[in-house]
């Protein structure tokens, strides 16, 4: 069992969650996501998608069931260890406001490598140097090198989402969690960006979990999870 878990990016076993005094929001959810695999989570608002992401990120404690991230049981970790796990093994792309506005594009992308040597070493191992890793991701995500020294607040929304993706993927995390990262873009840009995200995840052997309302994106993913499979009230 342990050997199997260690090869998985994420494993959720019989997860159950309810807010105090309310009926369970998440009921008996189990799933496993291998390194490099992608999962599309869809469903209406208020059905526990964000709650699930918060539990995976270690923000909301696990009530019942078990979650392993990169082979580590979440409920056994201290808050500090959860911070470290998040920094070393996870990348996040939010719906909006992803970047530190006053930092340059370079600093925004390299932030995880500044904080965690493991991410730095992984980036160097993968591309020879952190600068090459940065340039590769910038090119791969269709950003111009000339933007590197610009402050993040000077970028368009689309550029910001690409920079956020570069930050999430740098240093080869085990899993990237994306919470409706393309919802503010038109379909063409959404589609293009989604292809880039999935391509990068595949290249880096990083698991990608994405939440979205837009069902049209789901066929590109290895697995799909609809909220009605685990949310009791949706």
């Amino acid at each position: 069992m342990n050997t199997t878990i260690n090869t998985l990016a994420v494993k959720i076993s019989h997860l159950q969650f309810s807010w105090p005094g309310q009926t369970p929001l998440i009921k008996d959810l189990s799933l496993a996501l291998d390194a490099g695999e992608s999962l599309f989570i869809s469903g209406p608002s208020g059905c526990g998608k964000s709650t699930l992401l918060n539990i995976l990120a270690g923000v909301i404690p696990v009530q019942e069931g078990k979650i392993w991230i990169h082979g580590r049981l979440l409920s056994e970790l201290s808050n500090t260890a959860k911070d470290q796990l998040r920094g070393e093994e996870m990348g996040f792309i939010f719906q909006q406001f992803n970047l530190i506005p006053y930092l340059s594009v370079t600093d925004n992308i390299l932030l995880p490598t500044y904080l965690y040597p493991k991410r730095l070493h992984a980036a160097v191992a993968q591309h020879g140097s952190v600068t090459h890793a940065l340039q590769y991701l910038v090119d791969r995500l269709g950003l111009s090198q000339s933007l590197l020294q610009q402050a993040a607040h000077q970028l368009s929304i689309g550029q910001q989402q690409r920079v956020a993706a570069a930050r999430a993927f740098i240093g080869k995390p085990s899993i990237v969690i994306a919470d409706e990262p393309t919802s503010s873009l038109d379909w063409n840009n959404q589609s293009q960006l989604m292809d880039l995200f999935l391509g990068l995840a595949d290249e880096q052997n990083t698991a990608l979990m994405m939440v979205s309302h837009d069902e049209r994106l789901s066929p590109r993913f290895d697995h799909t999870l609809a909220v009605n499979q685990w949310a009791t009230e949706c």
Binding site: M90, N98, I100, L115
Partner: peptide
């Protein structure tokens, strides 16, 4: 708030 949230999301520790 957003700025600090992003720092924590990338693994910044509370003391930082």
């Amino acid at each position: 708030r957003r700025e600090l949230a992003i720092f924590r999301a990338v693994g910044a520790k509370p003391y930082q």
